[in-house]
Amino acid sequence: MNRMNDERLEAYLEGEIPLEELPAALRDEERMLSDALGMLREDVRAPAALKGAVMAEIARRPRSRLRALVEWLVLPRPISVSPAMGGALAAAVVAVLLLLPAGEPTDRAGEPAAAVATPDPVVTRFVFVAPGASQVSLTGDWVDWDPDGISLTELRGSGVWTVDVPVPPGVHEYSFVVDGTEWRPDPLAGEPVDDGFGRANSVLMVAAAEA
């Protein structure tokens, strides 16, 4: 395709010019493709039973009260609360809720949950290289994917960002957020995993500290 045709085609794809303004050969091709693909177009509606099935499953396994409460605290709301304060409040509520009767369904309904000693968090250092970034934060499952996350500090304008964070023992998924919008896995960690929501997360294994 010559350069001019290529530019016209791009303008058409962008919606800047109508089909009629394409050169004749391109116009014919485009009509052929539109007609052919149009044969696959279906004006279908979702099956009537779909919504019922979704709602039944949701009702069967509702979101936990703990998660809803943590979200209520950490998600953006009209009132002004600094991320640090939000995180502190969330941590406080989590600590309080851990002392309350379990809100999650258990396999042994009606039986009180056995008291389990929660292992102490382990301070873990995270390092991320992002030259030119104006802010980098860390988020992960142990902070319920709070998009404000935990702020990293840049080492003297070097583009190297770091933070030491207490992380509960266990296997965690995490990600860095550059300039508040760009989610990036940790290149210093192993192979990232697909989170099923269009993002790749890094995996971190934290062993419990020895007593």
Binding site: V44, R45, A46, K51, M55, I58, A68, W72
Partner: peptide, 25 residues
């Protein structure tokens, strides 16, 4: 997020048809 299933049901109703069509296509 606050626990309203009716609200989520409204979202299901709003988006089920275009997404179903996409999957079919």
């Amino acid at each position: 997020r606050s626990g309203s299933h009716d609200a989520f049901g409204a979202l299901v109703e709003r988006y089920q048809d275009p997404l179903f069509r996409y999957a079919r296509h």
